[in-house]
Nucleic acid binder design. Structure first.
Lengths: 123, 123, 123, 123
DNA sequence: GTGGTCTAGACCACG
DNA sequence: GTGGTCTAGACCACA
């Protein structure tokens, strides 16, 4: 369900929240879709349930999810969902800018960087 | 001298270390080059000297820099420097993979992502 | 817990790191062992928590320790631990050479030096 | 003349002062003996003349050396020189205690440590 | 409860 | 002038 890297410098709870944000914006998750339970996610990835709970809680605060009593968490009905392509590009912009800056610091020409990214995007 | 974003989630000292790593690998800094003093960097960016000192210290531990007693820090002579393009691509790989994964979660087609990155790389 | 001499010329944080290195190599600390918290060590020895934190951080960089998020620092699982006697002798070699050189500069015969060391090793 | 390790953590000036102290206590240097000039020592070891000068100055302050105008530095006449063996052992005691503690932390038995030191003392 | 980061400022070591 | 170490204390991130 989620791609989680416990070793990453990025905190686990944020990996989950941002992944949710992207999957909802991208339409992979639609309003009303039920999310896996805190216990399931925590058990599957061997992480602390409190961490998953916190991520769900923050996503709820943000309006991405809503709590369905007795059933779990679901994608919020109010979510606009499936944002326009331009809106989704905006979410990627900071990472694109950081990547470009780093490539320049490495004195890498555009071509190999674009080709490598193109290949990764095909998968 | 360094591009520092105090608001970023990435700690300042690590921003400096990683920037050093890239600039040395990219050849913008060559073995023997003297770095700006801790006090200069701290004053210029209005950050605490200890933060800069910590970054320099870690870069020294990593073998990127060496201390010239009484003169300051310099790019280490042992540094291979100016790594091959393939080696430099390796430093960018994790970011490329993360970017590709996020683009897919956003259900973005390759084309606009590659075009946007291409434009950023031209600057 | 740790033997710390605040008056020594050797910085406190390095005293801690090197002691960790020896105790792990010697098997007194085993992979997975939880270390006393930064605050405990700092309080016990009346030193600044940041000093301890710095020592732990360097030991982590060196691969001796690993951070268990929210639980503290533990001896790294990857540590070979309990090195062979020959490997442990290697860690002592520089000090042995310095001691021998100093004894010679003092024109001290081997015998009293060895006897004194022997007595100290019995404790 | 002096055994100097520029890479050591111990500052160069102190390496010189302590070596002087030991060689005078051990009788290898006698009252009146002329020391090599600052320029010679600095040139030979490729270190900063100011460092040597500082070491000589501290040794003078300590009463080990005296300045002979126009001739250079010499071992002070007032120096008791050639201390008793017990006095010289005292100068080695801190290092012996540190070594013993480290050997114990490494869980090394006395025997190999003493044998290795014995061999080094024979050279 | 853990550790991490940063600040402001002091003092030291070295050249 | 350089960097190194330490303190006291604040605030954050994570579990």
């Amino acid at each position: 369900m989620f791609a989680i890297q416990p070793t990453s410098a990025e905190p686990i709870y944020r990996q989950i929240v941002e992944q949710l944000r992207r999957m909802i914006a991208g339409g992979q998750l639609s309003a009303g879709d039920l999310l896996p339970s805190v216990r399931d996610v925590a058990g599957f990835h061997a992480i602390n349930p409190m961490t998953v709970s916190r991520a769900y809680g923050m996503a709820e605060t943000e309006g991405l999810l809503e709590r369905l009593r007795g059933k779990g968490m679901a994608v919020a009905a109010t979510t606009r969902g499936n944002a326009t392509q331009a809106q989704r590009m905006t979410l990627l912009e900071p990472q694109l800018q950081a990547l470009a800056r780093h490539a320049q610091e490495l004195e890498l020409p555009s071509d190999p960087v674009l080709r490598r990214l193109g290949r990764l995007l095909e998968d």
